[in-house]
Each structure stands twice: as C-alpha cells, then as structure tokens.
Amino acid sequence: MTFGRSSALFGLSGGVVLVLATVFLSLVIGARSVPWAEIWQGLNGQIDSIGAAAVAVRVPRTVLAVLAGAALGISGAVMQGITRNPLADPGILGVNAGAALFVVVGIAWFNISGAATFLWLGIAGAGCAAVFVYAIGSVGQGGATPLKLTLAGTATSIAASAFIIAVVLPRNDIAGNVQAWQVGGVGGARFQTILPALPFALVGLLLSLASARILNALALGEELAAGLGQNVALGRIVAAAGAIVLCGVATALCGPIGFVGLVVPHLCRLTGGIDHRVLIPMAGLGGAVLLGLADVAGRIVARPNELDVGIVTAFVGAPFFIWTVRRHRMRGL
C-alpha cells in the first residue's frame, strides 16, 4: 500500500537471499568444526568421515528449521491480522500448547506413532486451543483486547502443560521423548518425518495467501471491511484455518516453539510495508531466517552441547515482546 511494487519485490528477493545465507550457515556451522572438503562430501551423501556424517545430519535439520520457521512466521502474521492484536503469536495465545497437549495425549494413551497422525493431532489441538482462547478473550466489553487474549493464552498454556506433566510423569517409557520434543527442537529431524508434512504446509500457505486481501480490509476495521464488500466472517475463518494448520504442522514436527510468530511479522512490517499480500510471504522468509539462525546460534553458544531452538527463540523473542508492549498503548482490563 504505502510501498510500491518494486520495493516489495526488493524486500522479497532480499528475504530469499537471507534464507539462502541461513541455509549455508546452518550446513557449515555446527557443534563440530568440519573442514570444507568433508562438508562437500557430506552434502553429496558420502559419509566416510565423521565430519561428513555430521554434515549429512545437518541437511534434514536445516530443511526442518526453514520449513517450521516459515510456517510459524506466516501463522503469526495471519493471527496478528485476524485479531488486530500486535501481541498475537501461536506461543503466547496458547495454540502451540494445545497442539502439544493433543500430540502428547495421542502418544501416551492411544499409542499413536507415525508422522502423519501427529500432524492431524497437532492441527486438531491447535484448532481447539485457538477457538477456546479467542472465545475466552473476546467475552465482555471491548472485544478481544491484547491483555485479555494474552492472559487467556497464558492460562491455557499453563493448564495444558499441567495436563501434559500429569499424562507423562507416570509413563517412564515415553517421558524422555516427550521432554526432548517439548522444549522445541529440530535436532532429530529426518526426511521421513518431514515429507508427510509438506502437503499440509502447502494447504496452510495457500489458505493464508488467499486471505491476504481480507486481512488488508480488516486492518481498516470490521465495519469498513464489511462496507467494502468483504465477507468478513468467511474471510476470518479461512485465515484462521490457514494459521492453525501451519502452526499445528510446525508444533507436530518440532514441539512448541514460541515467539517466532510474534517477532517476524513486526520486523517485516518495518521493512516491507503493511500490505498482507507482501507481508505474508515476507513473514515466511523471515521466519525461516530467524529459526534457522536460532538453530545455528544454539549449536555455537553451548559447545560441545546444543541449546534447543525453542530456548533461543524465547531468549530473543521475550525482550521483543516487552518492547512491543511498551510501544503500543494497551487498553486495561
């Protein structure tokens, strides 16, 4: 809107370059230093040396980080658009926690395994949590204010994590798996688990892109959007479905990761304008860069151990959250 077509194109191509740079860094840098020759061997699938084998493991991990980051970034942008709330983020609104609860219950009670079922569970959990939090947050006068939504999301997250502990604690056989998954990591990525997620991610992406025009209209206010001839209710549902599918997929693959969906859309708005047709793809690229870099940073800072990516994003994202709260005038309860 305020930015021209050429500047949008500039922003998007800049984003693509950054994603490629992130992928490069993620392949080259790790807890173990590997010489260039072995990196090349590892990328070609020759895993004769330890270094090359380490690099070969980094490939699916990088793909997962880029994919999940893009999904979370887009989902955050769409949620901020629907709720017209600068603090909306799948982690803060409790949507990730809902997805996590469903997946954990599926593992513990129904002996579910297999990536595709996880995806369905994650999406169902994300959907339930999103509807629940939005319903609680929009009760009463003033509609869904940032404070009410955030509190409802926090309460839902805490309740979900209490139930997750209650489900997991008696089960020694699955506790280790769930613990590692819950912190939020891309470490154990394998292509067999990533491939089934691709169709879901694609559906989520298309739904989000399709709702871009309606989100633009909604930014002007609900009445005005309806006055412009938009079907607001339908548009909201399509957009929410896209955001929920994306965040459910990301959570099912790498556990609840917070703050990516919060930080990325704000940064993209600073650089690429507020038109959702540009903002949504930009948020995807930005999310991929952020999560990829967070993963790389997690490998470096705690050598020889690795820091899970969820911890890194919380470290980066929480100060950003506070900054956003300070920047906006918040309506009280």
């Binding site: 940032p146 994202g317 959250f321 709260v325 918040m330 009280g332």
Partner: peptide, 14 residues
Amino acid sequence: GARLILIGIGVSAM
C-alpha cells in the same frame, strides 16, 4: 496495570 502484567508475562517466559 495492563502493561505491567503483559511485561511480567514476557519476563516470565524468558
């Protein structure tokens, strides 16, 4: 009040 609570939630996440 609202800002205090929201900032507190951010701090506690970190």
